[in-house]
């Protein structure tokens, strides 16, 4: 009985100091992951890749346990993980990675980087829209929204809201975007060598084509942290371009075809 109260007050204390608890939590996850990387995979799989995968698995269990939408962060004890892993800290740290980045590499890839953003948005959209049609959707608004969701899980709802899509279609578009971002996190280190993702130039193009900020952030972190600023730079323009094209040009295109 006394042990129970002690435990409860400990949990309460950790929850009250959420952000600090999150620092400790992430440190422990990373330490364990680096150890697993060394011992189990003999350094073949990067420690941060293991840690990101572990984070996703924990997010799954957190979501199952609470029924919430913020993964592990919905568990009271780990609420600080939500703050640490939220957009504010993520973007602040991404900006910091630009310190010491090579300005020359950026200049050189400038126009291909910009081109890759537009191609990336249109490509993902077309794939997503085609899948929607293949699964029997015929309403142009629904097809456009799902296609936009395949770009990122922000472009989907923004486009859907602008066009007046139903909420279940918007939910589907978010799910498509989530699948994309999670797959980019896990898949990038696995395919990096094959697609030539080992220099600043290809990282810029990678960021522009993938576009999901969280996916790109985690994918590059797990592949080679030195590439982060280049991929992140182009990726940050992707969602904006997607929100611009989705409810306008791309919707008109879909409406004209269907």
């Amino acid at each position: 009985m006394a042990l129970d109260t002690l435990f409860d007050s400990l949990v309460e204390l950790l929850a009250r100091n959420g952000l600090i608890t999150a620092f400790l939590f992430v440190g422990l996850v990373l330490a364990l992951s680096n150890w697993l990387s060394k011992v189990v995979t003999r350094g073949q799989v990067h420690g941060s890749a293991v840690a990101i995968a572990a984070g996703l698995v924990l997010a799954y269990f957190g979501g199952v346990a609470t029924g919430g939408s913020k993964g592990l962060a919905d568990v009271g004890l780990f609420a600080g993980v939500g703050l640490l892993g939220g957009a504010m800290f993520r973007d602040f740290a991404i900006v910091a990675t630009a310190y010491g980045a090579d300005l020359g590499a950026l200049r050189q890839a400038g126009w291909v980087g910009a081109l890759s953003v537009v191609i990336g948005v249109v490509l993902s959209f077309v794939v997503g829209a085609a899948v929607a049609v293949a699964f029997g959707f015929t309403d142009p608004i629904a097809v456009t929204t799902i296609g936009a969701g395949a770009a990122t899980y922000i472009v989907g709802p923004v486009t859907g809201t602008a066009l007046g899509a139903s909420s279940d279609v918007v939910a589907l578009s978010v799910a498509a975007g989530l699948t994309k971002s999670i797959l980019v996190m896990i898949g990038t280190p696995l395919v990096a060598k094959r697609i030539g993702l080992d220099n600043a130039h290809s990282a810029l193009i990678y960021g522009g084509l993938m576009g999901t900020t969280s996916g790109v952030a985690a994918g590059l972190a797990a592949t080679d942290p030195k590439l982060v600023p280049y991929g992140a730079m182009t990726a940050t323009f992707y969602t904006g371009v997607g929100c611009l094209l989705g409810p306008s040009v791309l919707y008109f295109l879909v409406a004209a075809i269907l």
Partner: peptide, 14 residues
């Protein structure tokens, strides 16, 4: 950055 990204992974709606 990497620790933050791990926290980000742990709060995704998997």
């Amino acid at each position: 950055y990497i620790p933050i990204v791990i926290a980000m992974a742990a709060k995704q709606n998997v």
